[in-house]
């Protein structure tokens, strides 16, 4: 056992380096004062953040992504919570089917889900117009996270608590609102934040299902990088990393205790 300790430490450090190095490099690259996306940076400067803030394409993309993520998260929260409630309260084959269905977008490669949706929406004659396909894709990608988090917060909960509320005179809906909802709130919040981040960051789904006109941030960034190779792209990435970091930290501070 003792012999394994240095090896374990080495593996642990390697994993962290492997995971964090790209993020560190992107952040450093965004502070580059030079004209090209290079590493190590040539002098430090915030000029590319300034450039980015004045670039309507990116600002629009961020707003578009945020709105898309908010809407997808809202829909996911409703559907995912309903599915979680059903799954936790029924020990049936149907409930198992619901669980697998909810987790499928997580199990399947993103690209498969995207292509399947693309075929489907062309088949029913809508195609990628009206952003319905894109929106549906985002809801699907975010559903597993809501489902998993709410399921976790429901499991181990005493189901008779809701029944107790019923005998005390609460309708099904009131019992849910006054008793169940507060109890699963941490799961909802965590699931919601996860969903938002996933939707904000996801690439494959957006790439395949996006229609004409506005595009989510990752797509816009990709388009930009094909023709430009300035640190502005790194600045955009850094902002999006910061946003994610803030959300995760907030959720951890508020709900980490539960």
């Amino acid at each position: 056992m003792r012999l394994a300790t240095p090896l374990l430490t080495f593996i642990r450090v390697s994993v962290y380096v492997f995971l964090l190095a790209p993020i560190v490099i992107v952040v450093l690259a965004s502070l580059n004062a030079g004209n090209f996306l290079t590493f190590p940076p040539q002098g430090l400067s915030l000029r590319w953040f300034w450039t980015f803030l004045q670039n309507d394409v990116f600002i629009d993309a961020i707003i578009y992504s945020a709105v898309l993520a908010l809407c997808a998260t809202a829909v996911s929260l409703v559907i995912g919570t309903m599915a979680a409630l059903y799954f936790v309260r029924h020990a049936t084959r149907e409930a198992e089917v619901v669980r697998v269905g909810m987790l499928l977008p997580l199990i399947l490669p993103e690209i498969l889900t995207a292509i399947a949706l693309l075929f489907f929406f062309y088949e029913i004659g809508i195609g990628t117009e009206h952003q319905i396909a894109l929106f549906t894709g985002h809801v699907l990608m975010t559903l597993p996270f809501v489902f998993l988090n709410v399921t976790t917060s429901l499991q181990g909960r005493d189901e008779s608590v809701e029944l107790a509320a019923r005998t005390l005179g609460a309708s099904r809906y009131t019992a849910f609102r006054r008793v169940t909802l507060p109890l699963i709130a941490p799961g909802l919040a965590t699931g919601g934040i996860f969903a938002f981040i996933i939707s904000f960051d996801t690439f494959g789904i957006s790439f395949i299902l996006k229609g004409a006109g506005s595009a989510p941030l990752p797509i816009q960034l990709y388009d930009y990088l094909r023709f430009n190779f300035t640190p502005e792209a790194a600045a955009v990435s850094t902002v999006s990393i910061l946003l994610t970091l803030v959300l995760v930290t907030v959720s951890d501070l508020v709900f980490g205790r539960e």
């Binding site: 005493d158 008779s160 608590v161 029944l163 107790a164 509320a165 019923r166 005998t167 005390l168 005179g169 609460a170 309708s171 099904r172 008793v179 109890l183």
Partner: peptide, 18 residues
């Protein structure tokens, strides 16, 4: 419905609202 029956119930797990 349960809420229309005017009963008081005590559960084995107590089922207090935590």
């Amino acid at each position: 419905l349960p809420e229309q029956r005017d009963i008081g119930m005590v559960f084995q797990s107590y089922a207090l609202f935590p």
